[in-house]
């Protein structure tokens, strides 16, 4: 564990609390992509199956359980409690275009051709693109509530902080590098660049998040 990863994880944690706060206070999940949230549940379940056979630390296990539980809870809120505020007609990204390639990539690139290792790879690849339905929705509506942009920013910061974490680990752990995680992580962080540009130049200057027409 190093500071970059800890801050990254805390940022991830914060993003979930921001999302829950947004849904509870506005009593609405407007602007949130159900598809992205469903992909996150898939990611967490596929990756954290290792709770059953790999113990890293109490911190690690508690975080994993929290990420699974909170992501399922968010789906519940969207699908049941605040269902009328969820508009599937603008959440139109075709997730089969993400799932298919991720399945294929995980079958080719994995550290061992076993069920758990392929699922681990799959979760890494899927996480890297899981935000796309959300960004697509943003692009489509052209605007977002400020709180929703804070949620996305916290998620982006989490991913961005994993990059210095890997550099730090490479230096301090004698050249250790995880090619699958690093490649997917760079792609994932890259997807946030456009968003961050608008976030920093508009939202943090007190303006509304609006994309040019």
């Amino acid at each position: 564990m190093n500071l970059f990863r800890l801050l990254g994880d805390l940022s991830h944690l914060a993003s979930i609390f921001i999302l829950l706060h947004k849904i509870q206070t506005t009593r609405s999940c407007r602007g949130i992509s159900f598809k992205t949230q469903a992909l996150y549940v898939t990611v967490f379940v596929a990756r954290y199956l290792d709770l059953f056979y790999r113990y890293v630390s109490l911190y690690n296990s508690v975080m994993k359980l929290f990420f699974i539980a909170s992501s399922v809870y968010i789906l519940y809120l969207m699908k049941y409690k605040y269902r009328p505020t969820n508009d599937p007609s603008i959440d139109t990204f075709r997730i089969e275009y993400l799932l298919g390639p991720c399945v294929l990539l995980s079958l080719i690139f994995n550290y061992k051709f076993s069920v758990t290792e392929v699922l681990w790879s799959f979760s890494i690849f899927l996480e890297s693109v899981a935000i796309l339905p959300q960004l697509f929705m943003l692009q489509r509506t052209g605007e977002a509530e400020t709180i929703t942009t804070h949620y996305l920013a916290a998620l982006g910061v989490y991913r961005a902080l994993y990059i210095p974490n890997w550099i730090y680990r490479y230096i301090t752990e004698d050249g250790v590098v995880d090619p699958i995680a690093v490649t997917a992580g760079l792609v994932q962080t890259g997807l946030y660049i456009d968003f961050f540009y608008v976030y920093f130049t508009k939202v943090l200057q007190g303006q509304k998040f609006e994309l040019p027409a």
Binding site: R5, D9, H12, D50, R54, V56, N60, M63, K64, F67, Y111, K112, E117, W120, I124, Y162, N165, R169, E173, V176, V177, D178, I180, A181, V182
Partner: peptide, 10 residues
Amino acid sequence: QSPGSAHDEL
């Protein structure tokens, strides 16, 4: 040690 150093990450 399991393959892939990121296995101990979240």
